[in-house]
Design a protein around this nucleic acid. Structure first.
Lengths: 147, 147
DNA sequence: TTGCACTTGGGAATTCATTTGCATATAGTA
DNA sequence: TACTATATGCAAATGAATTCCCAAGTGCAA
């Protein structure tokens, strides 16, 4: 199942074939999808991803987007982010691996990464409850939409 | 999209005293649902609500649960809570009206209300972004499931 | 108590995201 | 370069949540 992972090279636009071994073939579609996810640097929904991908590969299908998201997630290349009431979004596992939170813009519906964490959350817990994880989502307008 | 609720046709004079006027008839089903939501004092999903309601009204249908949730929400009697990757839950508008957050138990899948808020969230915002709302969801095990 | 408009129950229908089947295209290697 | 297992594109199939349809039931004003 999970193959040992070799140290990363740089960005995944045209990575050494060996790094993606568990993923199977490096197709134009997969490379483009991964490049887009890396380039945008924000969590993307399957729909957003397909929209962006179509610009470079006009015939790429939604199925291919879904199939690759699944494969990339299984291979731990990307990570799913869920926002209340929204489709899941995906970002590079590398980004997801350091603790951060998200901002959802009500204007453009994009999700952005936020640095930092307020902490002090354990104090909210009732007695006897155990904390394993937490999610914080701020919402409002991003710079562009606020202007 | 359902058509907007029409005003009562037959009866012209009707005491506008009640805050529930917009809700129409007080049926056994609606009373039971509202009573359950109030009694449980935690956000309930349509499924949970139906499960609980069936105990008192064995023949109550899912449709009725959904219809009433919609009506009660439109009438501002209850309020929807969304948790990432979960069905919406509903709690009394009265409870929802004072700022609080939620805990999702991974054992029993219940959602609980939490008191308080860590604050300091505005500091996470990038320059130019405006904050309208925020959501915090802690997850782990509730007292019962942790034991 | 009566009458009827509003509700309900229950199943069918819808919605929407995601998955799958299959014929064709193609990456990677022999 | 030729070959073959995989991946893709498209359309149809799923699956889960929610809504709709309509015959039958019922709250409530008179």
């Amino acid at each position: 199942m999970s193959a040992p992972r070799k140290p990363r090279a740089t960005t995944a636009a045209r990575p050494p074939a060996s790094a993606q071994e568990a993923l199977g073939r490096t197709t134009r579609q997969r490379s483009a999808l991964l490049a887009i996810i890396a380039r945008e640097a924000r969590p993307l929904s399957p729909y957003e991803l397909h929209e962006l991908a179509v610009r470079e590969l006009p015939s790429i299908s939604q199925s291919t987007v879904y199939r690759n998201l699944r494969a990339l997630e299984a291979a731990r290349e990307i990570h799913a982010v869920s926002i209340p009431g929204q489709q899941p979004r995906y970002e590079l596992a590398e980004i997801a691996s350091h603790h951060h939170h998200h901002f959802h813009c009500r204007g453009c519906d994009r999700v952005y990464d936020l640095e930092g964490c307020p902490g002090g959350l354990r104090g909210l817990l009732p007695r006897g409850f155990t904390l394993e994880e937490h999610t914080i989502v701020l919402s409002g307008k991003c710079r562009t939409c606020a202007a």
